[in-house]
Simulated scan of single mutants.
Amino acid sequence: MFKHHLNKHKLRLIVLGLASALLIAIASTATSIYFYGSTKSNFQADAAIVLGAAVWGDKPSPVFRERINHAINLYQNGDVSTLIFTGGVGTSDELAEAIVGKRYAVSKGVKASHILLETTSRTTYQNLQNASEIAAAYPLKKFLIVSDPLHLKRSVLMARNLGLDAHPSPTPTTRYQSLNSQLPFLMRETYFYFIYLIFKI
């Protein structure tokens, strides 16, 4: 009886220890994701890869617009010479995200000849995989990954695992500024970061 009670106590301690370790790992990862987005690459690259986001008809959503605006600023400041827009069609009645991004950038003065597109991706990994395939056909070696700050740790890891010399370039403005909007996004990114580490997708 005493031995049985002792075994149950040991099992309880093991479970508690594993749960504590998991919580520490999750909290540590979430913290690193949060602070990673404040990293800015203050150097020139060959191209900016703009990760896709939702479009509203023929216009970029507020989230996507801020990513495009940041990429335009990089281009106009001479930090990159090429923009690569990514993203396919969310619903059948919408334009591809990349096409909307290109049209917006051209309307702001970016030369169409300095823009490359991939229009079939539906996920962040596909964004980067397709962009890397397009970039391989050009003399593009170094890349800035443009997205919201909390999205960048996972995105840059993916890009580097795809063989890209990739560096974070977070949008200076984002709709995810308040705690109420940041927390769900951070939880989502932490979840997908672990999913990527396990399945590499």
Rank of each mutant, 00 (worst) to 15 (best):
H4I: 04
H9K: 12
K10A: 09
L11Q: 14
L13M: 14
G17F: 06
L18W: 14
L18H: 11
S20R: 06
L23E: 07
I26Y: 14
A27F: 06
A30D: 05
S32L: 10
Y34C: 07
K40F: 09
S41P: 05
F43V: 10
A45D: 08
A47Q: 07
G52S: 07
G52D: 08
W56I: 15
G57V: 02
P62H: 11
V63G: 03
V63Q: 12
R67D: 00
A71N: 02
A71W: 03
I72T: 06
I72Q: 04
N73W: 01
N73T: 00
L74K: 06
N77T: 11
N77F: 09
V80C: 05
S81G: 13
G88N: 07
V89C: 04
T91V: 01
S92P: 00
A96T: 15
A96R: 08
A98L: 06
R103C: 00
A105N: 01
A105S: 04
V106Y: 06
T120Y: 04
T123A: 02
N127C: 08
L128H: 05
I134C: 10
A135C: 12
A135F: 11
Y138F: 15
L140A: 08
I145R: 11
H151F: 09
L152Q: 06
K153Q: 14
R154K: 01
A159G: 04
R160E: 13
G163Y: 05
G163T: 10
L164V: 00
P170Y: 07
T171Q: 09
T171Y: 06
T174G: 09
R175V: 08
Q177H: 13
S178D: 11
S181G: 00
Q182M: 15
P184G: 01
L186H: 07
L186Q: 10
R188K: 15
R188Y: 14
E189D: 11
F192G: 00
Y193Q: 08
I195M: 11
I195W: 01
I198N: 01
K200Y: 10
I201W: 10
I201L: 12
